[in-house]
Design a protein around this nucleic acid. Structure first.
Lengths: 108, 108
DNA sequence: GTCTATTTCTTCGACATAGTCGGAGAAATG
DNA sequence: CATTTCTCCGACTATGTCGAAGAAATAGAC
């Protein structure tokens, strides 16, 4: 059976959720970098997004080209119900594991 | 370079921390099952523990046999400073990604 | 006492899934 | 056609998973 989301999958899904309904590859990468401070390769994001789509946790729609140099079509992502459920499950797991731990570790 | 802890590594480290200084394989497995509700194979725990030891995030000491049938020596684990740092870093990342999200998703 | 059955705990080997990166490719505008 | 933005691909590493074998202890039969 399937045992939940990987660590990076969680981050991607959370970023996606924050940016919805305008979430797309580059934006997701930037959001993760901005919030976590760690640097993220674009390829890592796209690979993960592809896998999440394969697992039917997210769905996509194609946007229109933007009126700026190089502004090609973006592929927008949205979280499906199954994806939301998985995300909640894995975060709940973390929460229950950190509950009551010394401040700084408990997830508040 | 190394990008943090995996999802299961986080759970193992958190369980370890909760059970310290009596943390050992079986106890860690039970703690994760009890708190998260998901079933965990012992082999998965030991493999992860071995890898964490290899990365110098945890250290071990051998206990004495316990006076009960089959009570062989346990290998007790403790979190090293580097392990604690990694754990805090990855949980902080989650926390900053969930901050402000709809209740039930924010890590409290 | 010594065997051996049984229990507890740990390690190993093999494979599946997730994570990472650089570079190639496609699609837009200047 | 040069340049920019965005996405996909291929190859590899690291994590996650499991079952089964192995080691170390006690209990009870004899």
């Amino acid at each position: 059976m399937n045992h939940g989301l990987g660590e990076f999958e969680q981050l991607v899904l959370l970023a996606l959720m924050r940016l919805e309904p305008e979430a797309y590859g580059v934006g997701i990468r930037d959001e993760i970098e901005k919030r976590t401070g760690r640097s993220v390769a674009l390829g890592a994001v796209y690979t993960t997004l592809l896998r999440l789509e394969g697992k039917r946790l997210v769905a996509t729609r194609l946007g229109e080209p933007t009126p700026q140099r190089g502004g090609r079509r973006k592929k927008y992502y949205r979280l499906l119900a199954a994806g939301r459920r998985e995300l909640i499950t894995s975060i709940d797991a973390l929460r229950s594991m950190t509950r009551g731990l010394t401040p700084g570790l408990e997830l508040r």
